[in-house]
Write a protein that binds this DNA or RNA. Structure first.
Lengths: 335, 335
DNA sequence: GGCGTCTCTGTTAACGCTAACAAAAATGGC
DNA sequence: GCCATTTTTGTTAGCGTTAACAGAGACGCC
């Protein structure tokens, strides 16, 4: 047991140099003779030496680890984002440490952030879609690089976000363009900024068309809540178009409409949000809005890295535009 | 910038003790006077002291971090597992570092494991559902605690796995019990152990009933491939029952059957696997098999922790039984 | 040839913590 | 109250790396 691998001094001894020279080779320091560099490289390979991140972190004060705080990494959006972040981070030589939290209240978030800080992560990405998270973030130490994703647009914190408003507007407009007189909305939980943004966009599109928005029906992202809303919508003969805040809600709505014999898209059109991979195989295939999670991840990481390198905070902001994906769940209303 | 927080010596000075006593309080060492302990705790709180994980990792040789290697953390199964692992690990005071890999070949896996090792993780969990992963694992250093999840049952590596065979047998038996003469199978990729196990279980159930298994139709976990298989199944009048290797495949099948006007469950019954939260809202609600991801996560972590603590390797093995969830997608065949 | 100026390499001292040992204080039995 | 024992605290020495400085060659120029 405890066969600790070789350390830098072992490599140095084998290569016939000092450990500091090995360090220089490892960190790409310019002033090392080519021949020496090769000898060191050979020794590293021969011993299977692997630098000790803990020691490095101790002396530099930061590790090559990025901490991510997220709530429910089972949901499609967060899961995709996390995966994309991890990919991007790996390309930059960073590992990703996840700290998922059950609730997005102060205490949980602060605790998760604390855990990351005690590991001296290089920076933190908080996927903080709800109100209560914002407060926790403002009292964090100012010297730790931080980026929030889908967080509170009104707070002075670096933020990358999907343009919820534009996406929702596009979805709603798509339904209006098909000839619908109005569009109903099944929203996400109203303490999520995503939900608020999508409600806003939907409302904006209706108002711009001179229409009076009907009351949004609140869901909780799940198919179950979509189903419950769908049961109500199905019984309202005036409903011809529904925009749901995500695809799972849409699935629940589709199911309810189907049970009530209301055919989609002939009687009612439905548009979702997220473009989960299955959306194309719903009955009928779901028109939806696709956020570019890779772009969000890239933008967040880039923003974080620039903070890490420069040391400055800068409350930047970046918005990623989503794209409408048209499928068969939308048709003109029957007259 | 770089306002490094207080160190242990700062706490010690404030509390009027030596830094070693602070260390003892932090690590729950028994021989510390209650009064001293309280004084130290107060000093810690007052300074907002946070122990430096890197320093601790350096001196102990292990960090309080568990590395997880997984492929596609966007899929429901892996994502759920990852989330559950993270939760469980957090309860034990461990952080989780994800290293997702694009492909599950040697090189990718080894590289991911290397990255974890250089951060001196306390242990590694590999979610290694495919053949090629196994080889990479056997040549790892033997002294690092390792657990594989859904990996190769034939390798001498600690393994926690969902009982795919039992789950598939239950699903198939459920269809046979409903009166079906045989059951068709849409499988996952055949280099995944999950797929192989599910094929096995399905075949076993048929053989036990004295039936000759029809050829399984190979899918790739996606709704898209389920749809393609479904199009073929829909045109085969003798097909009355289908077991798919996961719920997304089932969704694709349902969609194809719907398009061909074959009603589910009246003409054809369908059973899936995974019990994704949406399965209850498919059209019709999907009968499926629910693996207990929390149990898998708990078992893996427990196995890993016992290795970490004892230092011994022990090729343990643990199997988690899944449960059948009956919904409306199964009915007796029409005669 | 001597001297300043590069380029390359080595030496030493941290970083913040735990482990091992040493010392001091408290406790108990007589 | 004194000695043996136990409990509690302090001292010292690393862990493996980088940073800061110092030294040794190599080179060119006067």
């Amino acid at each position: 047991m405890a066969v600790h691998g070789p350390a830098m001094t072992d490599v140095a001894r084998l290569a016939g140099v000092s450990h500091q020279t090995v360090s220089r080779v490892l960190n790409g320091h310019p002033n090392v003779r080519e021949q020496t560099r090769l000898r060191v490289r050979a020794a590293i390979a021969e011993l299977g030496y692997r630098p000790n991140g803990a020691a490095r972190a101790l002396v530099t004060g930061r590790s090559q680890v990025i901490g991510v705080v997220a709530q429910n990494t089972t949901l499609y959006g967060p899961a995709s984002l996390l995966a994309a972040l991890e990919q991007t981070a790996a390309e930059e030589g960073f590992a990703v440490s996840v700290g998922s939290v059950r609730n997005l209240d102060h205490r949980s978030i602060s605790a998760a952030v604390e855990r990351h800080l005690s590991h001296r992560v290089a920076g933190i990405v908080v996927i903080a879609p709800v109100e209560s998270a914002g407060e926790a973030l403002e009292r964090l130490p100012k010297d730790v690089p931080l980026v929030t994703v889908d967080g509170d647009p009104s707070r002075p914190v670096p933020l990358v976000t999907v343009d919820q408003v534009a996406g929702a507007r596009a979805a709603t407009q798509h339904l209006l363009d098909a000839g619908h007189r109005t569009v109903w909305h099944v929203s996400g939980p109203t303490d999520w900024f995503d939900s608020v943004g999508r409600i806003d966009g939907w409302r904006q599109a209706l108002l711009a068309a001179g229409l009076d928005p009907p009351p949004p029906m609140p869901g909780d992202w799940s198919a179950a809540s979509g189903y419950r809303c769908g049961q109500m919508l199905a019984r309202m003969p005036e409903v011809t178009a529904v925009f749901t805040a995500n695809d799972h809600l849409a699935l629940g709505v589709l199911r309810a409409l189907h049970e009530f014999g209301r055919r989609v898209p002939h009687e009612i059109s439905v548009v979702g949000f997220d473009d989960v991979p299955e959306a194309a195989y719903f009955i009928p295939p779901l028109t939806t809005v696709r956020p570019d999670f890779d772009a969000v991840a890239r933008a967040s990481l880039q923003m974080l890295l620039s903070q890490i390198e420069s040391g400055t905070g800068g409350a930047l902001r970046q918005t990623i535009a989503p794209a409408l994906v048209a499928r068969e769940s939308v048709a003109p209303p029957r007259h």
